[in-house]
């Protein structure tokens, strides 16, 4: 079976800005594929090209085996889209909006079924502006399902939600996925990418820096733990050089002057010597965090940036 999405050497320029800068990746049928990246990375631009909202400057994209330039209308009939910031009609109820959207497609799912699926059956007669943030997101996901699509594209489905509502959306996305729907989503959240996505593309400044499963991305780092220490005095170059081979100083003296981020292959072996070094030299340990390596570290490694939103 062909890929759900195939992006080949895609470039999108806005004037002198390369919003998408020569990226290639594929999304397989039946997977949850995530695009992870900071603000302005080019995630939305990439999705909008796939959705047919923008045309590429260069490169080719095919969706469900169809070319976006020539078969846009057929593609639109078979995909579902949740835009990053789209409103719906103010003066229609949820039920009416879904019914109206349904008339735009050759086949459509009945509104009560859709609302039931996203747990909004009780709100069918309400207007969108009467819903909470989480309910709104669930509704826009329901709206992306009116045509029972084979591929659903969600642009930041959980941004701005509290952790509970976010988990609720994850459950919903998994549930949609179980009905043999391919899902492409974007996110700023490492945790979300790691928990939800089977494969991930990491994007930064229009470029694709890695595409792999979350587990592979993490194991590529070759480290198991990351340690953040805050010291009273800065470490000298000699002190850093004295750390053993399994310790890598990823970032020195960031945030405030004396915070260091270290990565350890094996913390049972390396953590003791590191602490010894620090106390021996009177650097004064004020605070320490030891965490398993996450996508956050992968991102830092690949882009030299912290992913904060």
């Amino acid at each position: 079976m062909e890929d759900a999405v195939l992006v080949d050497s895609l470039v999108k320029r806005f004037g002198s800005v390369n919003a998408v800068d020569d990226i290639s990746f594929n999304v397989q049928r039946g997977e949850i594929f995530g695009i992870l990246g900071p603000n302005g990375a080019g995630k939305t631009t990439t999705l909008e090209i796939i959705e047919g909202l923008q045309s590429p400057t260069q490169g080719s994209v095919s969706v469900l085996g169809m070319d976006i330039r020539r078969q846009g209308a057929q593609i639109k009939a078979r995909i579902g889209v949740q835009l990053q910031s789209a409103a719906y009609f103010d003066y229609l109820s949820l039920h009416e909006i879904l019914a109206l959207l349904g008339t735009f497609y050759p086949k459509s799912v009945r509104p009560p079924e859709l609302l039931d699926q996203v747990d909004l059956a009780g709100q069918a007669k309400m207007r969108l502006n009467q819903l909470s943030g989480g309910q709104k997101q669930r509704f826009t996901i329901a709206a992306s399902l009116v045509n029972s699509p084979e591929l659903v594209i969600l642009d930041e489905p959980t941004t701005g939600l509290d952790p509970l509502a976010r988990r609720n959306i994850w459950g919903l996305i998994r549930q949609i996925h179980q009905q043999d729907v391919t899902i492409v989503l974007t996110t700023h959240y490492m945790e979300e990418a790691q928990n939800l996505c089977q494969r991930l593309a990491i994007m930064d400044q229009g470029r694709l820096v890695a595409v792999d499963t979350p587990a592979n991305l993490i194991s590529r780092l070759g480290a198991a733990y990351s340690v953040k220490v805050v010291l009273a005095h800065p470490l000298t170059d000699a002190q850093i050089a004295a750390f053993d081979a399994g310790v890598e100083v990823v970032q020195g003296q960031f945030q405030d002057q004396n915070t260091y981020l270290l990565r350890l292959n094996d913390h049972s072996k390396s953590l003791g010597p590191v602490l010894d070094q620090i106390s021996k030299n009177g650097a004064g340990l004020e605070h320490m965090e030891v965490t398993p390596v996450t996508l956050e570290d992968v991102f830092l490694e690949l882009t030299g940036k912290e992913l904060v939103d």
Partner: peptide, 11 residues
């Protein structure tokens, strides 16, 4: 409010 955009992603 991007309602037009939302309509554009339908056929």
């Amino acid at each position: 409010s991007s309602i037009l955009k939302r309509l554009l992603v339908t056929p």
